[in-house]
């Protein structure tokens, strides 16, 4: 199993992660998050002390297995309320920006 090796998060890594998470950051944020995330990961590294060979990862704390239900149609929140919640709408549809340039 792979180990936690390098816990240093550089500003360019912060940039990459932020892009994956769709969050725009300015230069000051990148620096701050680089320091803070590195510090947090350094703390988390403590877990390497625990021997977890032959240990199953937890899937659910109360050991629930797949919960099944009948595939029956039910009523739900009205369409009008949901469209109203969107910042922009047109012709009863949610309006978004252009996907392609």
């Amino acid at each position: 199993m792979s180990k936690i090796t390098d816990t240093k998060i550089s500003t360019s890594e912060v940039e990459h992660i932020a892009k994956l998470a769709r969050i725009e950051l300015d230069e000051k944020d990148k620096k701050t998050f680089s320091t803070q995330l590195t510090e947090i990961l350094q703390y988390i590294k403590k877990l390497e002390e625990v021997d977890t060979d032959d240990v199953e990862p937890t899937a659910h704390v109360t050991q629930l297995k797949n919960i099944m239900r009948h595939d029956k149609a039910k009523t739900c929140v009205g369409q009008a309320d949901l469209i109203k919640a969107a910042p922009a709408s047109q012709d009863n549809c949610i309006k978004v920006k252009a996907v392609l340039k």
Binding site: I4, I17, L20, A21, I23, L25, F33, L47, T52, E56
Partner: peptide, 27 residues
Amino acid sequence: KRRIMLGTYTLSSGYYDAYYTKAQKVR
């Protein structure tokens, strides 16, 4: 933002086992 990025990082390819799976084992 900090927690979203931390989670995005530990779940990203190459780090998932070292962080997420390890944590679920310690759990």
